[in-house]
């Protein structure tokens, strides 16, 4: 199998996973709107949770993956690792945009304001900007090895920065709802809502994997075309 065929096969796999995820997302929303009770205090706005929470978790996870792959790249110097890091960062940026839009949509009816400089919101905004910078820098370097090395350096610095940003805004102050899913005691969400959000998390896992796989395949195909153009010349 040629490199091109294998990249195309990766792309098709990514498409299949994404299609499955989108079908699942539709399913989750049917369940969320029709079969999950309306939250007593927040009203229908709470339905946004089922996108907002998983997308936020996966946005941060995507950046963490980029950071970890950056370490791996400097260790192993395999350009496929760099492509995966890039793919994950790009998906992370897209998820962050969804998160930053869905957050205020929920915030207006519940907090009474579109935007609040709350700790977690602010952290994610800064981390989002950091990775937008990561993608901008990638666009400003032509040579592949140099791009990979510089990106890895920035990815590692970014990974180290995340806890500091979080600590900074936390020391500043916070009004975000306390964690309901990942906390030491049992989740405090009513059972039906919990099931819905866990389903949604599963769907977004697939969505992240599907998107990243496709984006990775695109990067591989681009590299192949660059190689072909050079050998023709």
């Amino acid at each position: 199998m040629t490199a091109r065929e294998s990249a195309l096969r990766t792309a098709r796999r990514g498409q299949a996973i994404t299609a499955l995820a989108l079908a699942g997302l539709a399913g989750v929303y049917v369940r969320a709107l029709a079969f999950t009770p309306v939250e007593r205090l927040q009203g229908p706005a709470q339905k946004i949770y089922y996108v907002h929470v998983p997308v936020a978790i996966y946005a941060l996870a995507a950046f963490a993956v980029t950071g970890l792959l950056s370490i791996a790249y400097l260790w192993l110097r395999d350009e496929r690792i760099d492509r995966a890091a890039e793919a994950s960062a790009e998906v992370g940026v897209v998820f962050s945009v969804v998160m930053l839009i869905s957050g205020p949509l929920w915030g207006k009816p519940v907090w009474g304001t579109w935007w609040a400089w709350d700790a977690r919101l602010t952290s994610t905004l800064f981390i989002f900007l950091l990775f937008v910078g990561y993608l901008i820098m990638r666009g400003a370097i032509v040579e592949v090895d140099q791009r990979a090395r510089f990106s890895a350096v920035l990815g590692i610095l970014g990974l180290a920065l995340v806890p500091f940003i979080h600590l900074t805004v936390y020391l500043f102050r916070t009004i975000h709802p306390q964690p309901i899913l990942f906390k030491p005691s049992a989740p405090s969400l009513p059972g039906v809502m919990l099931t819905t959000i866990l389903l949604s998390l599963g769907v977004f896992t697939l969505l992240y994997v599907g998107f990243t796989t496709q984006r990775y395949a695109v990067a591989s195909l681009r590299a192949l075309r660059e190689e072909e153009l050079l050998s023709d010349a």
Partner: peptide, 29 residues
């Protein structure tokens, strides 16, 4: 460190602030 990279990218003068500002949040705040 970031300037060592920024000076070797296109738009070097623009790149440093974009890369550096997120890192300034903890120390400056």
């Amino acid at each position: 460190l970031l300037s060592a990279m920024a000076v070797r990218t296109r738009f070097a003068e623009l790149m440093l602030p974009i890369l550096l500002l997120p890192f300034l949040i903890p120390p400056v705040v």
